[in-house]
Every structure is written in C-alpha cells, then in structure tokens.
Amino acid sequence: MKTPPYVLLMLATLLWGGNFVIGRAVSGDIPPLTLAFLRWCVAFIVFFPIAYRSLKHEWHMIKANWPIVIILSLTGVAAFNTLVYIGLHYTTSINASLMNSSTSIMIYILSFIFLREKLSKYQLLGTALSLSGVTFIISGGSIASLVDFTFNKGDLIVLIAVFCWSIYSLLIKHYAKRLPGQSTFLVTIFTGAIMLLPFYIYETATLTNLVHWQWSSIVAILYVGIFASVVAFLSWNSGVVQLGANKASIYLNFIPVFASIFAVLFLDEKLHAFQIVGGLAVVAGVIVSGRKVG
C-alpha cells in the first residue's frame, strides 16, 4: 500500500521543523561547524547503501554536470545548514524557521534576476508581503530597529542561509531532467562533507571545549544526520513525485508551525506577537505568489 503524499510531505516538514529546534537545543554543546560536518557524515553512511547502485549507472550524468553538482554541494549541503546552526547560536529556532519560509519568495527573485523569468502581479505582491514579514521578524517588531539597523545577527545569518538554499533549490529545479535525484544527493553529501572538513579541523584545533559528549548530543547528531537529512529527503521527494512540485511546496509552510510548537514545548521559547504577525505575512505572501493569473 502506497503512503499518501500528504503524509510523506507532512513527515518531511515535521522532521525539518525539528532540525531548527535541535540545532538551537545543542548550540551550547556542539559547535556549529562540527554539528554540520558530523550530520553529513552520518547521512552519507546511512544513504550510501540506498543510492550506491543508482550512482553506478548514473555516474556519467553526474560527471557531465560536475560544475553544477559542486555548486549544489556548496550551497545546499556545506553552506545552508552550517549557517543555520551558526545563526541558531544568536537567535531563536522560531525566528530561524520563520525566516526559512521566505525560500520560495527568494527563488522567485533569483529566477527574475538570473533566468529573466517574468514575475506576475501575484508574485510581486507576494514578494512584497513576505519580505515585509521577514523584515518585521528580524526587527523584533520595532520601528527603532529598522531606523537604527540594529538587527539580530543570528537572523541575518539565517537569512544568508536561506539565500544559499534558494540557489540550491533553483538549480535542482532547473537541472531536474539532467541530474538524477538520489545519485546527485549522495554525491553532494560527500562533496559537501569534504568542503566542511577543513573548517571542522580548524574548529577542533581552536576550541578547548569542543563537544560535550552526552546522550543528548549523540541523539541530536543522529537525528539531524538520519531523520532531518535522509528520511526527510526521501519522504519529500516521494511526496513531490505523487502530488507535483507546485502543490507540494505549500507544505513547506508547516516547517515554522512544527518548529514553533517544538520550541515552545521543549525549549521554553516564547511565541511573541511580532513573530506571529511576521510569520503570517510571510506565509500569506507565499500563498498569494502561488496564485495563477487569470
């Protein structure tokens, strides 16, 4: 019996929502570069037996598009999660997950700039709505912050991470017919981990208290390496195949919902009015921008 697509998509967003909370929860126990590196090492070990056979048959496709694969590894694997984990040292998991909701809007902007794709009136309106929501969140709902440009640096770092993920998503969409899914993901995991290795070594050499090894740290690494990476990826891809990319993308708005619930329940984070208002603006912008003209 085939699992319904909405179950797969909800599972993926639930696991990704948990990734923001886990990253925040262990920010004092595991340095960000170390967490990112260990995450992708675990993901590679788990995913290698699943995708190896496909890779043997599809290697020629990977090799033919290796510059794109390198960029995918840099933006989607090495940069995105590392920047998120760094940002979570300075901001809340709720803020970070809300910022992540602006991904589709950023993809529209990048498509307009680099692919010369025209923006519809709904996309323009949605972009304005979402960007205003993001600005409201990073300013903490304070006009004074907007005037003085005193933003939380963690929010800004996460925003850069979202920019990297948007580039990754745009390339994945653009090269979908030329790059096989599972094989490409396996290679980008390996390449991204290699990119992170020197930063991991540097962090290990310069920090005196590197990792506080305890059960919570081990569980966190296994969670982000297995569930937030491999299980979420396979669930999302399967759901997208069944439902279609456009209909599936709306499920990404559940990430901040799950992250906020987990953060309030397990991290004692407070959900503030400016986060609700800003988050609703971001989600509304995504919904409006997805409307078809006519």
Rank of each mutant, 00 (worst) to 15 (best):
S111D: 13
Y168C: 10
L171S: 08
A144P: 01
G181I: 13
V147N: 06
L124R: 08
G133K: 04
V147R: 13
P198V: 01
F149C: 10
I143G: 00
L115S: 05
P180D: 13
A144F: 05
K177G: 01
L170T: 02
S111F: 08
G154N: 05
I138T: 00
L156I: 15
G154I: 03
S183G: 07
A193C: 11
I172D: 11
M195D: 07
L131N: 06
S169R: 02
F149L: 15
A144S: 14
L179C: 06
L186T: 01
S111E: 14
L170K: 05
S120H: 03
S130W: 02
W165M: 12
C164H: 00
I143L: 15
V147C: 05
G154M: 07
S132H: 01
G154V: 02
I172G: 13
I189M: 14
T150D: 15
G133H: 05
W165F: 14
I201M: 14
L156T: 10
S111T: 05
I160C: 13
A128K: 00
F199N: 06
T135Y: 04
S183F: 09
F151T: 00
D155T: 00
A144K: 07
K118I: 01
I143D: 02
L170R: 05
G141A: 04
L156K: 06
A161C: 03
G192P: 05
G126D: 04
A128P: 03
I201V: 15
V158S: 02
G140H: 11
R178N: 15
S169D: 10
Y108D: 06
L171V: 01
I137T: 07
K153G: 03
T191V: 15
I194K: 06
I172F: 12
F185H: 11
K173G: 11
T184V: 07
L179D: 06
T188L: 08
G181R: 10
A176G: 00
Y108A: 11
Y122T: 03
V134Q: 13
F185L: 13
L115Y: 14
V134E: 10
L125I: 07
R116S: 13
Y202K: 12
T135S: 14
I105C: 04
L197T: 04
T135P: 03
Y202L: 14
F199Y: 11
G181L: 15
T188P: 09
D155C: 06
Y200C: 08
L186N: 04
F163P: 02
F136S: 03
S139M: 07
I194R: 04
I137C: 13
L156R: 08
F112S: 09
W165D: 12
I105G: 09
S102H: 04
T150E: 15
F136I: 01
I107M: 13
T184I: 07
L131C: 09
L159V: 00
